[in-house]
């Protein structure tokens, strides 16, 4: 299983935390053809991403194949302090799933 694909830059300022997040993932659409064999490359993409802070969901995304390769999201939530932990859980269309953590700076 792929591990540590989510890169997070979270910065707390005042009572808000701005999160910039990028997942390293090919986001294969299932519509591209293998140039050599001419066969379709099966779809492989992230379907769900959930970000939790202190046991509370602060952001969640359901994604389709039209999200760019290496999906990027930026959002801001109220609360969060330097050193707090964010928990990211993602689910791939293959059923693979993982949970990663990152600290707020």
């Amino acid at each position: 299983m792929a591990k540590g694909i989510v890169k997070v830059k979270a910065k707390a300022s005042g009572d808000k935390t701005k999160v910039k997040l990028m997942a390293k993932h090919i986001m294969e659409t299932g519509q591209r053809k293998d140039k050599k064999s001419g066969e379709l490359i099966p779809a492989k993409f992230l379907q769900e991403l959930k970000v939790m802070h202190a046991g509370k969901e602060v952001f969640a995304a359901n994604m389709g194949t039209a999200i760019s390769k290496n999906p990027y999201f930026a959002f801001t939530f109220a609360g969060g302090a330097k050193g707090d932990e964010l928990t990211m859980t993602w689910v791939e269309n293959s059923g693979a799933t993982a949970t990663e953590t990152a600290k707020i700076k």
Partner: peptide, 27 residues
């Protein structure tokens, strides 16, 4: 995206406390 093969790109859940301001990149 209306003219994509599948128009729905993504759905973001915005729980209370999260600002309604989300950026992403799409195809």
């Amino acid at each position: 995206v209306k003219d994509n093969p599948t128009p729905l790109v993504a759905e973001f859940m915005i729980p209370a406390g999260t600002k309604a301001d989300v950026s992403t990149r799409l195809r």
